[in-house]
Amino acid sequence: MTVTSVSGPAPARPSAITRFLHRHEGWRGHLLLAPALILMTVAIIGPMWMTLMMSTWTVRGFDIIVTPGLANYTAMANNPMFPVLIWRTLEIALTCTIVTVVLVYPVAYFLAFQTGRSKAIWLLVLTLPFWTSYLLRVFAWRVVLGNEGAINSGLMSLGVISEPLSWLLYSQTAVTIVLAHSWAAFAIVPIFVSLEKINRSYLEAAADLGDTPARRFWRITFPLSLPGVVAAFIMMFVPTMGEYITPIMVGGPDSMMVGNLVQAMYGPMANWPAGAALAVVMMITIGLASLAFVGLNRLVQR
């Protein structure tokens, strides 16, 4: 047998960068991450570091004294207003997070299990309110909740009440309602995704092993959707904790949140270091609360 060598064109020699990237898989990932990482370092870590630094400074008259110290923190600890404010903020954020997650879970369930082919349309419908600006939505709520608003005038014309429910607008209730509505889509999506991910054969297996639909929900569906519930908690809790526009627009004197005070410190009160210290305390509170959610999830999941 004769062997004829068939030689095509010689293989092109790859460039040094190509060869390096071909060999080192890890670097390919790093290279892809680089733009976002650089942006995050500059735009997040930087300002956070500055805030942390500034929180150790103090203000005397119109001057900022840059000698580091804990004066802002001790002042906060000694002023009873701050714990009250932080508790109230926590209360509002937690209430609207819990209420929203509970209300939104069945919606996400419906989306994941019931809709079939119209899923995309339903998702679109659910995000419809978010096509308008945040401010417009808050204004719309003023129209709904106000003394002359849809709810009050509706109830009065039906004769259920004789004068407008004054606690509806400019109150903590109003802030909670508006916040819950504003962030609802952020709660639906993670729950929907975690429900959608559940392998349908687990549900069939549970039914096959004798579970009624209700039992199966509590033994299989709900535990498997918990990561989504926790994600929904965090996705809602974090932004609502930092809210300051909604309390201004629909809140009353009893519904000022920490965000409002931070804003005031940086604005009219011109005490940036104190505002920075408050922001740091907020970050720690949010961090701890989020950790608690994650820990709770671990505990349930074992």
Partner: peptide, 27 residues
Amino acid sequence: PHLRPINMVFQNYAIFPHLNVRDNIAY
């Protein structure tokens, strides 16, 4: 299905991922 005296071994086994082996068998 939950009222039929029939049980099934699924193609992908459908072993519940959040339970250990004992709880799966005792389900």
